[in-house]
Computed example of a mutant assay.
Amino acid sequence: MTQKLRIHLQSNPKAPELFRMTRERYRAAAKRQPEIARRVTCTIATDKNGFYRAMPRAEVLVGWGFPRKALDVTAPNLKWIHIIGAGIDHFLPLDWLPKKVKLVNNKGVHVPKVSEYVVMSLLMLANAVPSLVSQQQKRQWREIYSTTIRGKTLLVIGTGHMGGAAARKGKELGLHVLGVRRTPRPHRYIDEMYAPSDLLQILPRADFVIVTAPLTSQTRGLLGKRELDAMKPEASLVNLGRAEVVDYDVLRSKLKRGHLKGAVLDVFDSEPLPASSPLWKTPNLIITPHVASDDAETYMPLTLDLVLENAGRYLDKRRLKNLVVPSREY
């Protein structure tokens, strides 16, 4: 009898409900992929004791937070780790990762939800909703007339799964789409592709800038004062990637002075955002608490489907999906 692949789900009972891996959710995923599920065995734990009981035999570890010290000793049979998020910046540096263990992330799971959020953000910014909300808070009545969004220019910084989804929605809204990626290869939904070194050249052209780039040593501070100063006053910015990619102090100053039309931020240096943060009182700014891409109903089902799909690929000796390249930090 062929030995089954051993998968361990390390769940956080204190996480929001949509991020919890439960026996019921795993069974539902197994029913959706019965052929693969018959070839694996699964354990679930919610504490360190359960983690350490499972690790000696586990071949796959799925989770977001888990003990990383001496993992090569704790989990000698481990083949890969599946991180149930797209970004891996809180795992950097990867010096804790055993040499023969691969790392996989959750990219792709966020696309349906983030696509709708992008449309919402673009239409809000095109219709000056951040400014209208700021006026409402001051009980001010001042007409702000806007025009349709079609024909304007969108710049997407980071054209992976979420950036690609943003570009696609931009095209559907009739926008001319510029893109920035590490290697400026063509993209189906992007009219013009550029390298990060071209930012100062193309930022003045953008009516809307959407940031979806991961946080790495190369992208930290990518949009600093020079870059934000290059944006035209009528432009707006959306950050769905990581806060440290954009200089929020400079952004806040430009919004207060009316040197940018508006912004929508979903990611922050410290989360929850402290009540003392000046961002809360920044005019022409919409804040959402890191909810842009996480679907309350489908996030974990899609995650567990991906876990089982990769199990099937491994058992069939095929390449895993969503492999992280350590040297790129994503």
Rank of each mutant, 00 (worst) to 15 (best):
H290V: 01
V40T: 12
L154C: 01
R27E: 13
W96I: 13
W96L: 10
P186L: 10
R220C: 11
Y314L: 14
V129G: 03
I157T: 05
L92H: 06
P301S: 00
K113L: 14
G241Q: 00
V62C: 12
R150Q: 15
D305I: 08
I7M: 05
Q218K: 15
A206V: 00
T159C: 15
S146V: 08
D295Y: 07
T22M: 01
S253T: 12
S293A: 15
I144N: 06
R139V: 09
A45H: 10
T219I: 05
H82E: 06
K169P: 05
R185A: 09
R205F: 03
G221K: 07
A70E: 13
L61K: 06
E244H: 09
P272I: 08
D198G: 01
Y52D: 11
L240G: 02
R53W: 00
V177I: 07
G312V: 03
L255S: 04
P326T: 07
Q140C: 13
L279C: 03
N12C: 03
P204I: 01
G160V: 10
I81G: 03
P196I: 04
L122W: 02
P112V: 08
V40S: 04
P204M: 03
V209E: 11
I149P: 04
I44N: 14
S146P: 01
G65V: 09
V325R: 15
D269V: 06
L223P: 04
R318E: 12
R20C: 01
K48L: 08
K107V: 07
H110I: 03
K99G: 13
L273W: 09
N127I: 03
F66A: 05
P16D: 05
W141P: 01
V180Q: 06
V209I: 13
F19S: 02
R53V: 00
L285P: 11
P289T: 02
Y117I: 09
P13H: 09
G160H: 11
H259F: 10
M162G: 05
I157V: 14
M120C: 11
A275S: 15
A75M: 02
V177A: 07
M162V: 13
L18T: 12
V211M: 15
V111G: 05
R27P: 02
N105I: 05
V325M: 15
E244G: 09
A213D: 03
A263G: 08
N106R: 04
K4N: 07
G163E: 02
M21D: 06
H259N: 14
P98M: 10
R39T: 04
R242V: 02
E116Y: 10
L178Q: 04
F19L: 12
K138Y: 08
V238C: 10
S115W: 08
Y248G: 10
G63M: 07
Y194I: 10
V246C: 02
L255P: 06
V118L: 10
G108Y: 03
